[in-house]
Design a protein around this nucleic acid. Sequence first.
DNA 1: CTAACTTACATGCAATTTGTATGTATCATA
DNA 2: TATGATACATACAAATTGCATGTAAGTTAG
Lengths: 197, 197
Amino acid sequence: MTAEKTARRSQADRRAETRAKLIEAARELFVDSGFSDTATPDIVRKASVTRGALYHHFKDKADLFRAVAEEEAKAISRHIDQETRNVADPEQAMVTGSNAFFDAMLVPGRVRLLMEEAPAVLGHSAAVALTRANGTEELHEGLSRALPEHTSKHIDALTNLLSAAFDRAALEITYGGDPEVYKEVMHHLIGEVLKGK
Amino acid sequence: MTAEKTARRSQADRRAETRAKLIEAARELFVDSGFSDTATPDIVRKASVTRGALYHHFKDKADLFRAVAEEEAKAISRHIDQETRNVADPEQAMVTGSNAFFDAMLVPGRVRLLMEEAPAVLGHSAAVALTRANGTEELHEGLSRALPEHTSKHIDALTNLLSAAFDRAALEITYGGDPEVYKEVMHHLIGEVLKGK
DNA sequence: CTAACTTACATGCAATTTGTATGTATCATA
DNA sequence: TATGATACATACAAATTGCATGTAAGTTAG
C-alpha cells in the first residue's frame, strides 16, 4: 500500500502537489488583487511553499498566471462540453451551449481572470486562444449550417464577433447587469442572425 | 508681448506643457511595452522632466495612464462626432458612425491602450466608461428607433453587446484580420438586428 | 544496495521600481 | 517687494522581481 505517511512520495506526486498549491493560491490572489498588485511572496506564503518552488515550476510570474488562466479555461470547456454532449441538433446545441457558457461564467473570479487580466498579461492573441475552445465550436457549427451562402472567412468573423458579445454579456452580468436581460438580448441577437438566412 | 524667450512663462503654460510632454512620452511607452513593463524613470527621461514632475501632476502611474487613455478616447470621440455631425438620418448616422469608428481605431496604439491595457489598469467599468462616449449614441439612437417595442433596458443591453462586437472587430483588424470582412460582417449583423423589427 | 545522477526545492543577493518626504525655484498678488 | 502658492527637483526607504548558488529528496545503472 505504498506507505502513505509523507515518506517516499514520487517525484511526479510532489511536483503535481506543489504546482496545484501554487496555482490555487495564485488564483485567489490574482482574483482579489489583480496580476500586478499580487506579489510573489504573498502567493508562496498562501501556498505554503517558497519562492524557489515557484520559479522552479514557472518561468516567471506571468507564466504562473498563464497556468491559472489555462486551468480556468479548461474548467469552462469541460462544463460546456458536458452540457452539450448529448445534444444532437446543432441549433439546440447553440442554445444549450450558450446557457452553459453563462452558467460557467458565474463562478467567481472567472471574468476577472479571463476577460480583464488575461488580455493585458498574456496579450490579446493568447487570451482569445484560451477562450477559443469555449463553446465556439457549437456557435461556429450552428452559424455555418444556417448561413451556407457565406464564405468561411465571414463565418469565422461572425463567430468571433458574437463570441465577443457573449463575453461582454458575461462581463456585465458579473458587474451587476440583469442576467435575464442579457441572456434574452443575446439569444435575440443570435436568433436574428440565424433567421437572416 | 509677454517675453517669448523661455523666461516668464505663466504657471498655466508650464503646467500644460509638462503635462503634455508626460502624456505623450507615456503614451509611446505604454503602447510599446504595456503598462506594467513601462517604468516611470523611462517615461520622465523620454519627456525630459523629472519624476518629481510626474508625481506632482499625477497621483501615481495608473493615474498617468488614465490621463493617456482619456486623451485617446477624446480623440476618437472628436473624430466620430466630426464625421457624423451633418448626418441627419439616424440609420445613415449609424453607418457613418461605424465607419468613423473603424477609421479612428486604425491609429496605432489605440487598440492596445483602450482595449488591452485599460481594462486591467483601470478596471472594466472605468474602461467602458471611456469608450462609452464613442459612437454609442448613434447606435443607441438607431436601435431604439428601429425597435420601439423593446424596453429601454433591452436596448441598452443590445447597444452594449453590439458595441462589444465593434470593439472586437477593431481588435481583430489591428491583429491582422481582414478589415473588409469584419466591416461587412459587422454591418450585416446590425442590418439583421434592425430588420428584425 | 549504493554510487552517480537528476529533479525539486531553499536561500541569499543584486538590481529595479515605486511612492513619498523634503527642499528649492518660479510665478501670482496684495 | 514681501508673502504665499504652485511647480518642480532630489533623496530615500520599502517592496518586488528574477537569478545564482546551495541542499535535499528521489531515480536508476551496475
